[in-house]
Design a binder for these strands. Sequence first.
DNA 1: CTGTTAGCGCTTTCAA
DNA 2: TTGAAAGCGCTAACAG
Lengths: 348, 348
Amino acid sequence: MKKIGIKDIALRANVSTAIVSYVMNGTRNVKPETKERVLKVIEEFNYRPNAIAQSLKSRRTNTIGVIAEDITVFNTPEIIDGINDYAEQHDMHILLTNLRLQKKVGYNYADTASYQKHAQNAVSDLVSNQVEGIVYIGVHPRDLTGLIHTNDKPIVYTYCYAQNECSIQYNDEQASYDAIQYLVSKGHSRIAVISGLMDSIPSRLRFNGYYKALTEFQLYFDPQFIKVGDWGGESGYQLLGELMELPDPPTAILVMNDLMAAGALRAAAERGISIPRELSVVGFDNREFSAYLNPRITTMDLPLHDMGILAMKTLCNRISGKEETIEEPPLCKLIERDSVAGPRTSIK
Amino acid sequence: MKKIGIKDIALRANVSTAIVSYVMNGTRNVKPETKERVLKVIEEFNYRPNAIAQSLKSRRTNTIGVIAEDITVFNTPEIIDGINDYAEQHDMHILLTNLRLQKKVGYNYADTASYQKHAQNAVSDLVSNQVEGIVYIGVHPRDLTGLIHTNDKPIVYTYCYAQNECSIQYNDEQASYDAIQYLVSKGHSRIAVISGLMDSIPSRLRFNGYYKALTEFQLYFDPQFIKVGDWGGESGYQLLGELMELPDPPTAILVMNDLMAAGALRAAAERGISIPRELSVVGFDNREFSAYLNPRITTMDLPLHDMGILAMKTLCNRISGKEETIEEPPLCKLIERDSVAGPRTSIK
DNA sequence: CTGTTAGCGCTTTCAA
DNA sequence: TTGAAAGCGCTAACAG
């Protein structure tokens, strides 16, 4: 059975192919009874125009390419979901490329050269498929300047950066500021931080927010309250120990991701430190497991869905050549659970 | 700046468009020096053929459509990752549609009618875009017969079923059989089960495996050891209580998903039942959080990646009209963690 | 070895 | 209100 096309419809309806096109797209007035007839034939044959042919003619594909560094990383599905949300609303399609970064180069993100070729191929491929723009979703917020050459095809980065390119990020600084403010509202003033690696942009921004809040609320500041981890659970475990062995330990800790927070919880449990009674902990990322730890941890939820939507919005603006409307980066939201309480009353 | 096409290349290289096509595709022999010249021009202009036009001509798009019921559900990213793995290896592209089922109809899966239109639209859209086949990824293994009409376009379901259609599932029965066998190897003989809803296919299959193992290993069988939950954490919590209040409680429990297992752990903790010392628990799904519970739970990992690959393989076979090679459904794999030990020695 | 040319399925201009 | 036909960028049959 041959695939039926516009000609078949035209033939059956006794009209020219132009008429069929007109009724499908409403491009011209067509005599109602003719229109009716054409519609009936279309219905009868369940005809759907070949979008490939339409694209070739119209030079518009309504398709945007999404490059995900790794779709199995926790942030990515939600971002894609946002992208889909927007795409659905605007009748666009998504051509998905998954670089499978973790499986290919492991956690060695810094070694961009090793997967630059993959990334560049993905772009070329997408461009060849006539996508109208590209959204690039990173696995970790880092600088990707120069990684990719799009040849004027609009691209928007999210969950990563590139100089002189558009990138969508959430407001890291505000997020940690908010976390500290929340802790202050609970009565804390001796607040430590377990940061991620300091060469990472989010670590710096989150630290800024921490420090800004410290200053603004005139909190106790002790350089020993600043611990630098490596994002992994082990370092959270380790650093909580260091913090609690201080002669005058903090009453609350902001931990820059849930992985390290989980490690910290484990360390606290081993030391017989009760959370939140004796120590409050705020995490970051709102990973699924954070609601299953004991205690369930209070953490900052990342606006991933919004980032996806915003990335699309920005991209579509660029595609249609609209002037950039500078949008505020979306905000994180504190998820209140059970790892925060007031400071222990009897201060040592 | 105009997009450059094959004609521009031909012009610059002083050849006909046919030659350019020949050198690009290696379709014909071309005199080496001509070839060289063409290649140089292609390189110089960084020319990439318009895949849309190629497709129109060749009537092959090398793209397959993926419909995900909900990409934010835990099983989906890994399946897509498998699909991408295969696609990358075979130079295919993925047009992704995300139905966003949970956000649209909540957990009311049974009410297929409410999103049938969405699903059907997605299919029509994909077909119109000339995908060569479709992979449909469910959020829960249920029967979708009649939901969708693909009009002869090959489709493969995974993580769900449809009568008279191809569907890829893991081996549920074997998985729970293996779990019981493992428990037996640890010395257990009084093994209860907390099942999911009994109108669900995986519940039935997993129960079959449980029962088969019980019979085969001649284990103690007590109808009171069979508890039916609803997949949610609360029911795991509830049912563990019921089980442990039995005059002669089990020494081990197979829980049919990690969500219920988490509830069961909570109930055990509240009752002062030590896991695994006094009671062993095996979960199902290997959700991320299962490694963060206390104790970390031993659970069955689902072969999601393999399912994605297998779905693609099967689909591609159908597309190219190859005879169906009946593949074995991929196997789950037990992840040994800390929620299983030998039975408590002093039996009450 | 190379060039000419007919189409793939559609849209749209132009003419009727 | 309708139809004929050109052409989107490419491939491949055919001719040289």
